[in-house]
Simulated assay, not measured.
Amino acid sequence: MIFERDLKGAQARLGELLDNARHAVAFTGAGISTECGIPDFRSPGGLWSQNKPIPYDVFVSHKAARNEAWRRRFAMEEAFGGAQPGRGHRALARLLSAGRLAGVITQNIDGLHQASGVPDAHLVELHGNGTYATCLECGQRYELSWVRERFEAAGGLAPDCAACGGPVKSATISFGQAMPEREMARAAALTRAADLFIVIGSSLVVFPAAGFPLEAKRAGAKLVILNREPTDFDDIADMVSRSEIGDVLGPFADQA
């Protein structure tokens, strides 16, 4: 492991690894979005310290849980709805457009990768997307404005699907909900092909998503970890930096 304590050293080493890679893949977690004003889940003051997650089976089985889930979602919208892509998001979009990055696998649900210019064809959202909703029974898509209008008009009651009457849920993966098969397969294919796998802002404790960096390393890829806190995979990484993600990736956002 090379632990880059110096910011300039981290930038230079990452640049070298990208220059030598033919199939670089980024894997992002909540830490890439913290400079955008979106707190991560586990840190003090993070989302999990404020609200205990609602398991999928509870959401499906209890109307009161659906009411609470949507109340929380719209409360978050008030606080974080105006978030814009940060330097890390913009850097990955620029690296993709320049052909220096093959794809982005993300655990995030905030939609900031798309907002930065990352095309859907090169983005794998393992945990879904919180910027719209779907019916759990028929799959009908709903915009959040549709849900909110009906939620508020009903005095805080979650709306059901207009097409089939099924429960409407944000298009995210909740605890106890099956992982999306298509996205897992896409992530696995990107991981197997990677010769450089860059973890950005993930604590690497949520599985099965956290298994991809280990799979990439075992397949022979160089492993880079950019994260403020230590992870369980630091010892097997080829480079680790705990500098601020936006500081490390910022220069790459400006490169052609």
Rank of each mutant, 00 (worst) to 15 (best):
A21Q: 12
P167S: 08
N20W: 02
I236F: 01
R42A: 03
F197M: 08
A21N: 07
L204E: 12
Y56T: 10
G15V: 06
Q177Y: 03
M184V: 14
V104M: 09
A221Q: 01
G86A: 03
G99Y: 06
V224H: 03
R42C: 00
A154Y: 01
R66T: 04
F197C: 05
I200S: 00
V199T: 09
E16T: 07
A83S: 14
N20I: 00
R141L: 08
S43W: 00
M184P: 03
E137C: 13
P180Q: 13
R72D: 06
G9A: 07
T131R: 15
E137L: 12
S203C: 08
S241N: 11
G155K: 09
L14C: 06
I32T: 05
A237N: 06
D6H: 13
Y56V: 08
F74W: 11
P180W: 03
T28R: 00
L7G: 02
A93K: 04
G15Q: 08
R22L: 08
A93F: 02
A65R: 10
L123H: 07
L95W: 01
G201F: 00
G81D: 14
R87Y: 03
L223E: 05
F151S: 01
L95S: 10
A188C: 03
G176C: 09
P167D: 06
P251G: 05
N227K: 07
I54V: 15
A209L: 05
S170I: 12
M1G: 04
G166T: 13
E77Y: 06
S203P: 10
W146A: 08
I198A: 02
H113G: 07
I200L: 05
I173N: 06
R218T: 13
P180N: 11
N129C: 07
Q140N: 11
